[in-house]
Amino acid sequence: MPGNKNIKLYSKNLSFFYGNNQAVFDVSIEIPQHSIVAMIGPSGCGKTTFLRCFNRMHDLYPGNRYQGEIFFDNQNILSKNIDVTLLRSKIGMVFQKPTPFPMSISDNISYGLKLNGIKNKTEIKDRVESALRSSALWKEVKDRLKLPATGLSGGQQQRLVIARALAVEPQVMLFDEPTSALDPISTSKIEELAAELKKKVTIIIVTHNMQQAARISDYTAFMYMGKLIEYDETNVMFTNPQEKLSEDYITGRFG
């Protein structure tokens, strides 16, 4: 669908099962590089489940099963011999609720760096700062880097979590309703941030907020009951949807 753009990530006939329950049905989607793709759809439509396939988060729980393929830089990441740990450092994720680790603000960020084998203290310091700058948090926290991250406000915590994910320099970021627990001001800060981040990374964002999808995304995918109903450029999707279901959902007739 999205023209002849550089495709960073795509799924091919992807289905997903929680035990015997199928949650995602045969979804094929292409994610162009340096774009923001919004996943919308009513609760329980499988958009979060679908998102979590991209960093194999489902592997953490027994009984989950993928079917089909996901290609990331032309490598099938669902194949058995993929190093999931390495994959997850390339495809970062931000969750619905902010999840600072029980450490200081700077340790939250340097933690991932140290895991990736960076030992040089000045380099760690620099990268902590640049991660905090790119998540627009540096000015607010530079004087309290050593204090517990739990002392930050919800919006700040969420930006810290984004900074933490950015510090390990992922190529793709998965946002799972990142603003649903935040106030409007924090939400708009995160949205601005996403628009800025797109220069460096490719973003897939699951959202319940249709205005948000319309505001920040380049492409929008509408899912319903585990199936991908429609996927198009965001302005086309919101002005001239092709499917009756997407039109009904976008105009608020159900959902």
Partner: peptide, 12 residues
């Protein structure tokens, strides 16, 4: 979700 977010930055 805290554990998941740790896994999501590539921890073992």
């Amino acid at each position: 979700v805290l554990k998941e977010s740790a896994y999501s930055i590539g921890t073992t």
